[in-house]
Amino acid sequence: MGKLTAEQVKRLADDFAHMANALGDYRYENFENLTNEENLRLKELHAQTLSHTTELYTQSAILVLDDAATSLAQINTITLETKKLYKKLVGVQKVLDRATSVLTLATAIITLDAKGITNSVKKLLAPDS
């Protein structure tokens, strides 16, 4: 038998939950006719079934990782690509800003404007320019 999927385990948990409910309802509806011992035994069985059911729901939630692994990898790749595209498009503005700085520097050099040269070089070397 192959490995169970998250969905299959969730369905099993649902079935167990129905069984547990039936057991609980039987105890509540027949409480007055049950001996103390029978009531305690039924209560114990009910508690055990509920405990298995909750474990199955947790197992199903954990199995989701196996079933979603491929989709997770695919979506993470696409997210990475969108980030790269964003950087690339923002980069165009940075190139324009840099071009402006280079031209300003060139103009300053042509006109031998020492202060202008210093300012332009500073702007060019700034990390965000």
């Binding site: 948990a13 939950a17 729901y57 939630a61």
Partner: peptide, 11 residues
Amino acid sequence: NLIGKMEVQKN
């Protein structure tokens, strides 16, 4: 799964 667990808890 989580709501299922909460139903169990209610029981």
